[in-house]
Design a protein around this nucleic acid. Structure first.
Length: 580
DNA sequence: GCCGTTTTCGGCCCGACTGTTTTCAGTCG
């Protein structure tokens, strides 16, 4: 809990230092500290209490002191001093693509721009183009960036929303009056961003206790409503960015729990289709139950299964409830047997200190074993990325992995590489060394502004080398932050099918790439998928669930996913794929 | 600001790309 807050404090510190034109290496020290604390597998307060802070990588005497100060007082004097130099909203400008700290400082000094709205105004008035080293194109890019931000404004990323919802449920569940409590809404459907969080509960007797507790939870900054059956609050969290989100808690009678859960899970369009179906059968549905239209007699309501069954349907998994054909499929008995987390046998995309990961191969492998995996592919970056490996380093890594594997039973580290796809579609690593690997992932990390044709050709060429098993994060998008590069996804899917290449659903909640719709198209085309975390630290392996639920939104079944295969099946697939 | 040591300060992943400029600053990964 404290880890997130401390990490956010350091990130904010780093932002202000950068805007203040501080020594970049000092800034990096703060960023690194933020990262280290964020990925810490134990409570930072515990580490502080035991005087072990300076044992952490990148935490020295000074930063340890700031952590202690923050834990004890909730503030850091040096940060307060920096904050006082600028308007608080100035920092928001950093969220705009192509706007970095130098530009923020320039905008503030020269135009007195200190908020997103003022930036948009200044850009529309053509004032940016007049600044040094700025021009019309930059001005247009900034305007587009602001539009993108506004589209995602008011919505929080899935991971942040789950974090909030789970901590609220954990606080309320132990109360003696609480019977059942579960998040509903788009969160339960695992949409990639969440507007507001709906939590549903049943109580034994009065609901006052749970409602009281709810409106006084830590993080609640505003109480919008405080009633017996419904309360609404605003919760503010500061992760890497600051988010505020509305959380509604509803209490319903046990006999209506299923109907309410169904109703508040949505989607709205799914519910409309369902209600239309009910009417044809002489039934009506609302949040209290399913009723006979003529007599008003309740025929279902306590469980969701009951509600769907009353309409002659099997339970439709929440992830499918987007009115994308799921009601018809359910009626015809052809709902997919969706993949789940338990079906996953390993992770095929992970980084170590050989490139930009934070941990050793052994540490990552141990984390994978602790999660019951059969295998973990180590896929560090290749040159020409600054932190990428060259052939010599990769050979060294292969050797280290082979040595490590000697001591494992029932688990294997797979050798691999996330090889960079160069602008022309060639790969950033020699074929000879790639052919030695268990798994070759290829992906784009540069020159994002190529034309659609160039980018599409670039990635297809990489597939056509025959050296690539998986295309990682195929569209390059970052949820709510960056549109993907312009690429013809259907053409990629066609090429993946032709070349026998698997496409990744990158499970990182910032990526979720392929997204649900693209992944469904890939599945329908018969392309094999793989769900990977792209982990840069052991704790990142737990992000897999976000990928699995995205796959479920894409109607994906176990058989569609490469890393549900046991190790020998996986290796056999790879051999066949490479024509060996 | 941290780290490692050649113990007291110098180095810290750095290259590609864009949009500006006419040689390069800023951003990104």
């Amino acid at each position: 809990m404290d880890n997130t807050a401390v990490s956010a404090m350091f990130d904010e510190f780093a932002d202000w230092l950068e805007i203040d034109d501080e020594n970049p290496f000092r800034v990096r020290a703060y960023r690194r500290a933020a990262q280290v604390v964020r990925d810490l597998p134990e409570d930072v307060a515990q580490v502080a209490a035991e005087g072990r802070l300076t044992h952490l990588e990148g935490i020295g005497k000074d930063l340890a002191g700031k952590i202690v100060e923050f834990l004890q007082t909730g503030k850091v004097a040096a940060l307060e001093e920096l904050r006082s130099k600028y308007p608080p909203t100035l920092r928001d400008l950093l969220q705009v693509p192509d706007v970095g700290p130098k530009t923020v400082a320039l905008l503030y000094k020269r135009l007195n721009v200190s908020s997103l709205d003022e930036l948009e105004e200044a850009a529309q008035a053509g004032k940016l183009a007049a600044l040094p080293r700025m021009g019309k194109k930059t001005q247009e890019n900034i305007l587009r960036g602001i539009q993108l931000l506004k589209q995602s404004a008011g919505r929080v990323p899935l991971e942040v929303a789950w974090h909030i919802a789970e901590s609220i449920v954990a606080e309320l569940k132990p109360l003696p009056s609480v019977e059942q409590i579960i998040p509903a809404g788009s969160l339960r459907r695992w949409r990639e961003t969440i507007g507001d969080i709906d939590i549903l509960a049943t109580t034994t007797g009065a609901s006052a206790e749970v409602m009281d507790r709810f409106v006084h939870l830590p993080g609640v900054t505003e109480v919008l409503a405080h009633g017996e059956t419904k309360s609404s609050v605003i919760v503010v969290v500061d992760a890497r960015r600051k988010y505020s989100v509305q959380v509604d808690l509803r209490v319903v009678p046990p006999g209506s729990f299923g109907a309410a859960l169904q109703y508040f899970t949505g989607s709205k369009d799914h519910n409309i289709t369902l209600r239309a179906r009910a009417l044809k059968q002489g039934l009506t549905i609302n949040e209290y139950g399913v009723f006979e239209e003529k007599t008003g007699k309740q025929v279902a309501g306590a469980t969701e299964e009951e509600v769907y069954a009353a309409l002659g349907l099997p339970l439709i998994p929440p992830e499918l409830r987007e009115n994308r054909g799921e009601v018809e499929a359910a009626a015809e008995g052809r709902l997919p047997d969706l993949i789940d987390l338990a079906a996953m046998r390993g992770d095929l995309h992970a980084h170590t200190t050989y490139s930009d990961g934070h941990n050793t191969i052994a540490e990552m492998a141990d984390a994978a074993r602790a999660r019951g995996y059969e295998y973990l592919a180590i896929t560090d970056h290749s040159k020409p990325l600054a932190w990428g490996m060259d052939e010599k380093t990769l050979r060294k890594q292969i050797k280290e992995i082979r040595q490590l594997n000697e001591k494992y039973h029932g688990f294997r580290i797979l050798t691999g590489c996330e090889v960079d796809i160069l602008s022309d579609g060639r790969l950033g690593m020699d074929a000879a060394v790639l052919q030695q690997l268990d798994i070759v992932i290829a992906s784009v990390h540069s020159n994002f502004k190529q034309s659609r044709e160039e980018m599409t050709r670039r990635i297809i060429r990489a597939m056509e080398t025959g050296l690539v098993d998986i295309i990682a994060h195929p569209t390059g998008r970052l949820v709510g932050q960056r549109e993907g590069y312009d690429v013809d996804v259907p053409a990629l899917i066609e090429a993946a099918k032709r070349c026998g290449v698997a496409l990744e659903i990158n499970a990182h909640p910032d990526r979720l790439d392929l997204n649900d719709l693209n992944a469904r198209a890939a599945k329908n085309a018969g392309v094999l998928l793989t769900i990977n975390t792209d982990a840069h630290a052991p704790s990142n392996l737990d992000l897999l669930r976000f990928g699995v639920h995205t796959a479920r939104r894409a109607w994906v079944e176990k058989k569609d996913v490469l890393n549900t295969m046991p190790l020998d099946g996986l290796l056999k697939w790879r051999q066949q794929r490479r024509g060996l």
